[in-house]
Nucleic acid binder design. Sequence first.
RNA 1: GGCGGGGUAGCCAAGUGGUAAGGCAGGGGACUGCAAAUCCCUUACACGCGGGUUCGAUUCCCGCCCCCGCCUCCA
Length: 487
Amino acid sequence: MSLKIFNTLTSKKEEFVPIKPGEVKIYTCGVTVYDVNHVGHGRSLIVFDVIRRYLRYLGYHVTFVRNFTDVDDKIINRAQKECLPFTVIADRYIKSYFEDAENFRIEPADIEPRVTTHIPDIIDLIQKLIDKGYAYVVDGDVYFSVRKFKDYGKLSKRSIDELIAGARVEPGEKKKDPLDFVLWKTAKAGEPAWDSPWGKGRPGWHTECTAMIFKHLGETIDIHGGGLDLTFPHHENELAQAEALSEKPFARYWIHNGLVTVNGQKMSKSLGNYITLKEIYSRYDPDVLRLLVLSVHYRSPLDFSWDKMEESKKAYERLKNAIDEYQILEKLPENKKFDQHLYDNIAKAEKEFYAAMSDDFNTPEALAALFGLVRAMNILKDKAVKEEGISKKALESYKEAGEVLHNLGRDIFGLFDSLEPCIEIEDFSLHREESVINEEIVNLLIDLREKARKEKNFEIADYIRDKLKEIGIILEDTPVGTKWKRV
RNA sequence: GGCGGGGUAGCCAAGUGGUAAGGCAGGGGACUGCAAAUCCCUUACACGCGGGUUCGAUUCCCGCCCCCGCCUCCA
């Protein structure tokens, strides 16, 4: 089955053909570790996590690299504000990143390089650009000559002429041309600095990714990804550096995920309209956000709201219930005359799922295929419960449908793997209070209520149910007995 | 202003040259002693506006309106 991917470079959906058959090298821009991550970061992580899982499902050996920018202006500013070394800030937020990633079951990348451990590689890259005439030194700063790279703008579809209008020179910069961007910055007093042929300084932002890609994946990679907002200037600059030097295509496919908005405005630190990932998983199963992200195509904007989280939660439970309800069917007596099964539905759902995913990772459509199967399962279950019996074949088919649902959800969508957050967050604990409840006592009360119900003493039965509810326990009577759960 | 992406039922959201998935909400029903939970069915006659191409367009082309993003750091 062929996979089609929308390539930002060509603005077209193209058939995916890896450089080396059977292998995919993919790099995505990770986060700058100066603060905790929000839903916008989360979306990008989830999107590429799913893309990676799907590529692997298709049989590719995937090498996935995602970096950390662990030295930059924002980190330095924060460090100065807190009177701490910048490394402490970076380490703190790398740790925070991993907490988030673990909770959302974002698979760790195969390689997670940090800028500060790649300084020699970055210096080497810059030196080569200077040697080749693409970069120049001014008082310890090094700049890239944008005009020297003839393809500049091809990724973000910008022409040099257009860019001139918007270009500006920050105070203190010594560019020869306003279009140029900095590869190496001279250190100011008190800033972190490394020795280089041009004096003490630190790398500019765009250089790190190119250097780390060259080092870990080579001069041409299959897929380069990141948020839409990175297209310009970050990815354009990465590409310029890389192709100026290697004279080879830098990345064959560029994938950009759409941004998360709030009331239509981009979610961002500067606007202050962001929701942190920690807040999400302190209030919801992390899968709920994952499902919300997957219910929108990855290139479209996603407008975040708590209402949508509620809707997504319900949809998620619909999915999960279908899988769990096997337990009810299992307890029904056998009925050999029951003449339905789900094998056709399973085949159809699987087919539709993969077709959708292979069409530029159309997760909403793939999800619809899963819901189609859910409906078929529910109809079968309904019939079985009404007829008070089910055939072996039907039961088996339901079990298999549940497994298909569960496996597709888990292996490709990354769902159903994280039933509880693995890290407790104190700040938001009010939503997930662990009350001390003795299960045996609860079961005893349920037994008592059951007895009362059988004797038609509903006053007592309802009293028990109401009182349990007051202490946060909800009773649900099912065809096969009473279930209870915490609020 | 330039470039890019959008405007699909109450909300969200796929998709297609031949009258349109899915989720949520709404309505009806099943189940229940009553509930809750769950499930089934179902409503709407939804494709921004105006032209054009076509036997036929929501889908292609042109113009317009509106929204968002990028053009400065940003997933």
